[in-house]
Design a protein around this nucleic acid. Structure first.
Length: 327
DNA sequence: ACCATGATTGTTCTT
DNA sequence: AAGAACAATCATGGT
């Protein structure tokens, strides 16, 4: 190698610019705890690196995501696992709300990156919401925004610190980071499937190959809400108590179909992720006629009866709240 | 070792 | 009435 090692990204961008003539986005003034340009995070199920750039966010996972600041309505710091109760400690989440109502939840950002991110985002004059605030004081965040002096301690950090239980080993976490953030070379050659990953300056988003039939104006996405409304007491974003004795719900026809067909799809496309297989199953299901769906519907109806019976037995015998309680 | 997540559709439940 | 939860699945990763 050469002695320019410290400037690899500059060389790379220069070469790229020379070859393509395209505008090259370079790392910004943001620095993480390790003097890196990005922080580790995960979007959806993919984890990658979140680059806070001068004019946007750049997430570099399997499918790269570029979020420009001008698209952002607000950002929101959330304690990691806002929904889960047992989650805690070293991580927090960054929710980026776009003006077109899209949401990106960057999860699993190390807690010690919070300060850097907050200062950087504050410096970019992005709106910071604080819905995850445990205290009822809304609007305190904006106040913090106006006093973005680095010496001022913001309440979020304190809270997150508290929730983390101030383990002083956070400094040690750095060496735990196997891949250094700055060296997380964007040049990873694993483009075996990212053939269509063209990130031109256009507003191209959501390059889902499906739905080629017609435009889809109302993007009815089943998005989960990041619950964050708890007050000072216990919250119930999602009552996750499932009594082990409680009967399971009836299996929907589509689920029976999935059970039957999933193996088939997987054998023909062994490398598809489970979620991708689910997409394919959905597409296939939609194309099926009622006759084709009928066997699965019948199975579902049978299971519905099963559920009805077990449910009745459960209520009379072991339901919580009923005096029964015989295990 | 266990558990949560995501992605799908349909059914049930809750408000 | 309308939306949220939940059913099977499983690779993945954190605890």
């Amino acid at each position: 190698m050469y002695n320019f090692l410290g400037l690899i990204h500059e060389i790379f961008s220069t070469v790229l610019k020379g070859l393509s003539g395209a505008k090259v986005t370079r790392p910004s003034t943001f620095r993480s705890c390790l003097d890196g340009y990005a922080v580790k995070s995960s979007l959806k199920a993919e984890d990658g690196l979140l680059y806070p750039l001068e004019k946007g966010f750049f997430f570099l996972p399997k499918p790269p995501t570029l979020i420009l600041h001008e698209e952002i309505e607000y950002v929101e710091f959330e304690r990691h696992g806002a929904g889960g109760a047992s989650m805690s400690s070293h991580y927090f989440d960054l929710l980026v709300k776009l003006k077109n109502d899209q949401e990106h939840l960057f999860r699993n950002i190390q807690r010690n990156e919070y300060h850097n991110l907050f200062n950087f985002i504050s410096g970019k004059h992005l709106k910071i919401m604080n819905l995850g605030d445990g205290q009822g004081r809304t609007g305190g965040v904006t106040a913090v925004l106006q006093s973005t002096d680095d010496d001022s301690v913001d309440p979020h950090l304190e809270r997150i610190k508290n929730q983390a239980g101030n383990d002083e080993s956070d400094e040690e976490d750095e060496d735990f980071v196997a891949e250094k953030e700055d060296s997380g070379s964007p040049t990873d050659d694993s483009d075996e499937e990212g053939s269509d990953a063209s990130l031109s300056g256009g507003e191209k988003e959501k390059s889902s190959k499906k739905e080629a039939t017609s435009s889809k104006p109302p993007p009815v996405k089943r998005m989960r809400k990041a619950g964050a409304d708890e007050g000072s007491e216990k919250k119930k974003p999602k009552k996750k108590k499932k009594d082990p004795n409680a009967p399971k719900r009836a299996i929907a026809p589509f689920m029976y179909f999935s059970k039957a067909e999933r193996a088939n799809i997987k054998s023909s496309n062994p490398e598809l992720a489970t979620t991708e297989i689910a997409k394919k199953l959905g597409e296939k299901w939609q194309k099926m006629t009622a006759e084709e769906k009928q066997p699965y519907v019948e199975q579902s109806q049978a299971d519905k009866q099963r559920y009805a019976e077990e449910s009745a037995a459960y209520r009379s015998a072991g339901a919580p709240g009923t005096g029964g309680g015989s295990e």
